[in-house]
């Protein structure tokens, strides 16, 4: 569990390669899947195009549930990319774990708090940016921190931090704990030879299936909350 991380400094910036590599892999998988699905686009959709359009309809549905008006449609691409990237990231570690000399090279990128915090930081910054853009800086302050009642200002400010932490740590916690338990079951299967290996197989399968479910739910929750935070910033309360 406590594998060492392979850290490389490039221009004095510390890069955790055992976190970056799976992220790159997930991005590549997402890109090539979508690329493959979007070949031969026709007016009358067939086969792969139907799958892609179903995914797009699904993510657009998430947007519509929080922002039913026309304004929401501009976030379609962001939510689509965010959902597919997090979904693939969550499932990646369930299927593929590569450890070399106790150093992880392939796992779920979202099982690292750095990744989920980056994503959460990015979408929340984007939400604040949209708020400022729409209402101006004064309007943004008023809308976000001073309404409905000004004396809740400290709580409003605190809420922004908790939003960030909960959004990031919820995803991280779910996926990380899933992987920890997967490894625990793996260790258990190894420890007593055949006597523990055989019962470990169905346990591992069941936990993997459950983790697939959790990973999907968490991807959905993450993008739904992203939309909620964005709509809070750009809609007058």
């Amino acid at each position: 569990m406590n594998e060492g991380a392979y850290v490389q400094e490039i221009f004095g910036i510390p890069f955790n390669i055992s976190n970056d590599l799976p992220g790159l892999l997930a991005a590549i998988i997402v890109f090539f899947t979508m690329f493959w699905l979007s070949r031969k686009i026709q007016l009358k959709p067939t086969g792969r195009q139907n799958v892609l359009e179903w995914i797009i309809d699904f993510t657009n549905g998430i947007i519509k549930s929080t922002m039913p008006n026309k304004e929401g449609s501009q976030f379609g691409l962001l939510i689509f990319t965010l959902f597919s990237f997090i979904f693939v990231s969550n499932q990646l570690g369930l299927m593929l774990q590569v450890n070399v000399n106790n150093t992880a090279y392939i796992k779920s990128p979202t099982a690292d708090a750095m990744t989920t915090m980056t994503l959460a930081f990015m979408v929340l910054l984007f939400a604040h940016f949209l708020g400022v853009k729409k209402f101006g800086f004064r309007g943004y302050i008023k809308n976000t921190y001073l309404s409905p009642i000004p004396f809740l200002l400290p709580i409003s400010i605190l809420e922004e931090f908790t939003n960030f932490l909960t959004l990031a740590l919820r995803l991280y916690g779910n996926i990380y704990s899933g992987e920890v338990l997967l490894k625990l079951i793996y260790e258990f299967g190894r420890s007593f030879g055949l006597a523990s290996f055989i019962p470990a197989i169905p346990l591992e399968i069941i936990w993997q299936g459950f983790s697939v479910f959790i990973g999907s739910i968490q991807a959905y929750v993450f993008v739904t909350l992203t939309m909620v935070y964005i709509s809070q910033k750009i809609e007058k309360e």
Binding site: N16, N19, T118
Partner: peptide
């Protein structure tokens, strides 16, 4: 010890 390079990496990647 925060590997803040990851942040840059994921930002660019995304």
């Amino acid at each position: 010890s925060v590997k803040w390079g990851d942040m840059l990496f994921y930002l660019v990647l995304f």
